[in-house]
């Protein structure tokens, strides 16, 4: 009888622990830490942009949904709705400037003010893809 009770308690406790682990580590798992996430590719801003222009499916398979590191000449910084975006303009089109847009993490807001248009900048970010005008990088950090 005692063994049976212990067994039932053990099963119930194991179940509760399993549910708790599922809740904490699967259902409620944290978002990727974009600051510490390793990059899978490192390339020039122009190379990234032109790879999407010349072969989008290939570029998607290489860069979209991945953390990448890019380096290039900054054109300008834009602020909209408290979001700061580092912009690399490489072309002109229907939506005006086209190129690579990097939405910065708040921790990089101060860092980007040290740079002006024409400066060389190294940025790490999560590539969301190419929207037919720009390659979008999000959760970006300045690395130089």
């Amino acid at each position: 009888m005692k063994i049976r009770v212990k067994l039932v308690i053990g099963i119930v406790l194991s179940g509760i622990i399993a549910l708790l682990l599922v809740y904490l580590f699967i259902y409620n798992k944290p978002h990727t830490n974009y600051e510490t996430e390793e990059v899978t590719s490192q390339l020039a801003v122009k190379e990234l942009y032109h790879s999407f222009l010349s072969n989008k499916p290939l570029a998607d398979s290489l860069y979209t949904g991945k953390m990448i590191l890019i380096e290039g000449i900054l054109t300008k910084t834009e602020t909209a709705d408290s979001m700061v975006t580092a912009v690399f303009v490489l072309d002109q089109g229907m939506f005006g400037d086209e190129g690579v847009r990097c939405v910065l993490l708040p921790k990089s807001y101060d860092l980007i003010t040290r740079f002006k248009g024409g400066d060389r900048v190294k940025i790490k970010g999560f590539c969301s893809g190419y929207n037919d005008t720009d390659v979008i990088l999000e959760h970006c950090s300045i690395l130089n």
Binding site: I26, Y27, N28, K29, P30, H31, T32, T64, G65, S128, G129, N131, D132, T133, I136, E138
Partner: peptide, 14 residues
């Protein structure tokens, strides 16, 4: 309008 689907941000990562 043009939207990248991967740019949608949710409260929960899962």
């Amino acid at each position: 309008f043009r939207v990248l689907m991967k740019s949608f941000i949710f409260e929960k990562a899962l």
